[in-house]
Amino acid sequence: MKSLYWDDLEEGDELPAFSREITRTTIVATAIASRDFQPVHHDHEAAQREGAKDIFLNILSTGGFVGRYLTDWSGPEGELRKITIKLGATVFPGDTLTAGGKVVKKYEEEGEHRVDVEYHFSVAMGPHAWGSATMALPVKGK
């Protein structure tokens, strides 16, 4: 499986678009895989009692999707060093989660070749999660 080389990236490079249909099953499966049994992530009535229209995606799963989006782009040799997530609109069953991003900084730090990426995840209601991430990438000939 190929990984991106730090050498081949430029500041301003765009990450590929990402899109995923979020079903009730996605929300329940990701909540349980992240060991989050809060009823708002699997119990429709409980979610409504909390003022939401339906069950909704938990935060750990947002983190899971952000991390996955970044390493899908970099390939497995790209290493996550830091992820910041700002949270906005809730993700409900039936939403389509879309993502984009770009490289905003390319530099060397702590003996590593790093990039900072800004990314954003959205649903029809508006931005769901956005922020920055730092990754260490392989360089050619090493």
Binding site: M1, R20, T26, A29, T30, I32, A33, S34, S61, G64, F65, G67, R68, T71, D72, P76, E77
Partner: peptide, 27 residues
Amino acid sequence: AMIRHWCEAMEDGNPLYTDEAYAKQSK
């Protein structure tokens, strides 16, 4: 098992997480 369940739910195909052979030859 927990790693694989996570990857299954997230649809995360990074071979470092679930492919023994790939992970073994990685850093």
